[in-house]
């Protein structure tokens, strides 16, 4: 496990603190890791590439 040092906008930090205060997550780190995991799931490189290729196909051969 490595330590990541980041600068976080105040508003995001407030939301994060609220999640912890309300008991949805135990620590800010836990919430950040979950958010990162979700981001990486939806931003897989193969997915991003497929979306761009879809764009090009539509751009070249779409019927609109």
């Amino acid at each position: 496990m490595k330590t990541l040092v980041i600068e976080c906008p105040d508003k995001l930090l407030e939301s994060l603190d609220r999640l912890v205060r309300d008991g949805w997550v135990e620590t800010p780190s836990q919430a950040v890791i979950e958010a990162l995991r979700r981001f990486l799931q939806s931003h897989r490189t193969d997915l991003l590439e497929a979306q761009v290729h879809d764009d090009v196909e539509w751009g070249l051969h779409g019927n609109d």
């Binding site: 979306q51 764009d55 751009g59 051969h61 779409g62």
Partner: peptide
Amino acid sequence: HRVHGTVGVIVRAMR
């Protein structure tokens, strides 16, 4: 839904 992005809009300009 069908979804297209900036790259698609630019390429579409040629078509």
